[in-house]
Nucleic acid binder design. Sequence first.
DNA 1: TATTTGCATATGTACATACATACTAACATA
DNA 2: TATGTTAGTATGTATGTACATATGCAAATA
Lengths: 249, 249
Amino acid sequence: MHFKINHKSPIPLHVQAEKLLRQLIADPQYQAGKFLPNEIDLAKRLAISRATLRQAINKLVYEELLVRKKGVGTKVVTKKFSSKSNNWLSFSQEMAARGIPVRNFELHVSWVVPNDGLADFFGIDPNQKILKLERVRGQAEGPFVYFISYFHPRIGLTGDEDFKRPLYDILESDFNTVADLSKEEISAILADKSLAEKLETDVGAALLFRKRYVFDQADRPLEYNLGYYKADSFVYTVESRRQHSSATG
Amino acid sequence: MHFKINHKSPIPLHVQAEKLLRQLIADPQYQAGKFLPNEIDLAKRLAISRATLRQAINKLVYEELLVRKKGVGTKVVTKKFSSKSNNWLSFSQEMAARGIPVRNFELHVSWVVPNDGLADFFGIDPNQKILKLERVRGQAEGPFVYFISYFHPRIGLTGDEDFKRPLYDILESDFNTVADLSKEEISAILADKSLAEKLETDVGAALLFRKRYVFDQADRPLEYNLGYYKADSFVYTVESRRQHSSATG
DNA sequence: TATTTGCATATGTACATACATACTAACATA
DNA sequence: TATGTTAGTATGTATGTACATATGCAAATA
């Protein structure tokens, strides 16, 4: 298997190399904790310099897909909990990754006037109507989350989009809008009548409630999202590592 | 202000440079979003190569303490929400950072035999007793969290430690044990009689429930922690940014 | 005046090179 | 046999160099 790096492409070589590495280690043959070829040989095979290759490797090391050990080699990490990126999977992607088919129970689009806090967050005229998307989603057995999303008018959503597709996919491919930063607040609340009905549970059941403020790469507000999760069928997982001291080569 | 990098020190130059940069941007003079000197000049002043300096800068860029812009310069980030590190503040530190005085309502230390899951997590003999620490903490108005912690016997805790001090501070300075990785699961539950009494709330109130698995730098299990938070007085906040595409130079 | 052009600046990418250091395994020695 | 030495290998650190590209400003132009 020889790789092709295009030296004339406008895409930086280390980005191309990174992509190739990702493909390489995704291959079942490599899963088991195998070692990569050593940096010098691999650089030669890819026809790039060792420094450039190391840039690519460093990215994957940071993501904990690879582990380097001086004097030994670079190994593919066996078990991948895939920490941070997890936070950024949308609901459908998240479920797909676990092999759970998603079912849409309700999907309602409307144009509403924002309340004061929301108009303030978006930095828009409180009289300007914004798109509100409500969805109840879950598995075959029943619903387990109720989402309410409000979108900034800047995006240009019409309301006619196919919201069964992954949300962030729609924003990226159709509206060239990239969600980059998310601030979330998680708390617990009790289900009232309306929530209990939507989620097919009892009034007074414990729900996980998540507010999410989503920003684009320029830190401009994009989306305000509320999520009500049935606590017995969902846990929110976080994996965080301390700031490390080691660095690039 | 001239800096000193010690070329004879066993500490890598880029690590020394990183430390100097941290000191530099910590200086009030630099807070306001000022630009660093350009890489070439700065490298000259530090008497290191540009590549080495970039290694140091990259670390801080990754931590979002610095922002680089091609053709413009490298700027100190103004507002620092300090995303990731936040996850790593202990309760008392977290409260201190918000200027809220912490009050300890209960503190109970005991030696218990682990249940099967716990013995398995720690990888120890299920008959070996381990240290269990229970704490109810909150503000002046009342309690708002009930913690249960189990510690791995390897650490060497005796049970006589002053657990009013920040926990991770005790582990680090007195037991040379550094908590490095945490895996958390957050869900919502209803308060039963026992929990309601401890947290001075009603039976059936919504609580935020957090399980935390803590590991050291060698990924050895250190602590298993359960936290029950009164939902009306606490929200769990997460700030996460997407994986970036840029890399080292 | 408004717009374009071009230069200076700073970061981004890429390479070749050299030596340091951690680890492994094979070999030699007591 | 047990132990210490050594050679080989792979990553870690560090430098110097060159050119690419994005940005902002100032001068030239319509």
